[in-house]
Design a binder for these strands. Structure first.
Lengths: 189, 189
DNA sequence: GTCTATAGCGCGATAGAC
DNA sequence: GTCTATCGCGCTATAGAC
């Protein structure tokens, strides 16, 4: 059930504003003004402000879930899986820089879909944790607390949306390579 | 001008709620309710809601600035400076887990002090960038895009406040060591 | 599909009693 | 130092004209 036409425009505009100020600080009047219409007109296309947030966050979260499934089902080494995940995050983040902000910062304002979101998030983390632990068992990854590795990787991957749009003319291929190298092999010579 | 007594309690309560829902979604009535008083009573101790946010963010930002100055003035290798910065972030974050949330997520709602905050933040990043670039020149750090290193480190360090309180009985010493190892030397065996 | 008008509510903040 | 009462405003959302 992909929304279309005017509704897409509203969602896109909302994402942009949610990124700047956060869901709670953005009003329907702000969204309308950015589209040069009146706030009441928005309701001809959408049901509520909450519906906007919900659509933005859930569709992105499901995209990550789909990507994670593909990685898990690919029969490669743990390190190779981590490399695929870095690429997945760079890909999704660079194509959804605004929506990623809501996913990261406004999920707590979800209402009906909050539990579903939390489940997707928990499953994603659990899958990543398993990849890391398997890598340690396989002797592919150093024997350090897997929680520290999980935290460090996820923090960086979740912040990509802030960083990517700041760098003009970013070569995504090159960037993915550099980031993978730094995350996996560190920076010490 | 350290605030004292009841004012401290208000700031502490506000930090806690700001972390849960963000500045804009927290009302003065929420803060008052958490303290078992009425919203109007808060104004006997503070000037405005904005004053709360401003105090929380600016005092923390200045703490980071002070820490960064000490690191820069310490005459050691670039790698040693990075290690000190990891320890600085772990130290400040573990002692201010709530306030760190506002620093990271609600700075855009600052009014009078927004420009000052942005300056502190810019200076901090600039100082870290210089440490990294010097490390590359010195042959201490691998020759990769310094922006990627800057981004990756800062993302992880800025997320510590989310992660630290989730781990009960965290051994801060051990954690700092593990995190430093992962950030500097990577995870590949 | 957009408008004007407005309902119904909650917000930050103030006044003044105790 | 906390209270009750309230001001003035902005919010989401709806009703109904065009």
């Amino acid at each position: 059930m992909k929304p279309s036409g005017r509704k897409i425009e509203i969602i896109t505009t909302a994402s942009l504003l949610f990124k700047e100020k956060g869901y709670s600080a953005v009003t329907m009047r702000d969204i309308a003004k950015a589209m040069d219409i009146k706030a009441a007109s928005l309701y001809n296309h959408i049901k509520s402000k909450q519906e906007l947030l919900s659509h933005i966050i859930i569709s992105l979260a499901e995209e990550f879930t789909t990507g994670m499934k593909a990685v898990i089902n690919s029969e490669t080494s743990s390190i190779e899986k981590l490399k695929k995940l870095v690429a997945l995050h760079v890909f999704i983040s660079s194509n959804n820089t605004q929506a990623m902000a809501s996913l990261n910062n406004d999920w707590m304002h979800l209402e009906a879909q909050l539990d579903y979101y939390l489940q997707l998030r928990k499953d994603y983390e659990e899958n990543l944790r398993k990849i890391i632990k398997d890598g340690i068992k396989n002797n592919e990854i150093i024997d350090v607390n897997p929680e520290v590795v999980l935290f460090s990787m996820l923090s960086t991957l979740r912040s990509l949306y802030v960083w990517i749009p700041k760098k003009e003319d970013l070569d995504i291929e090159q960037f993915t390579q550099d980031l993978t190298a730094v995350l996996l092999s560190g920076i010490v010579k």
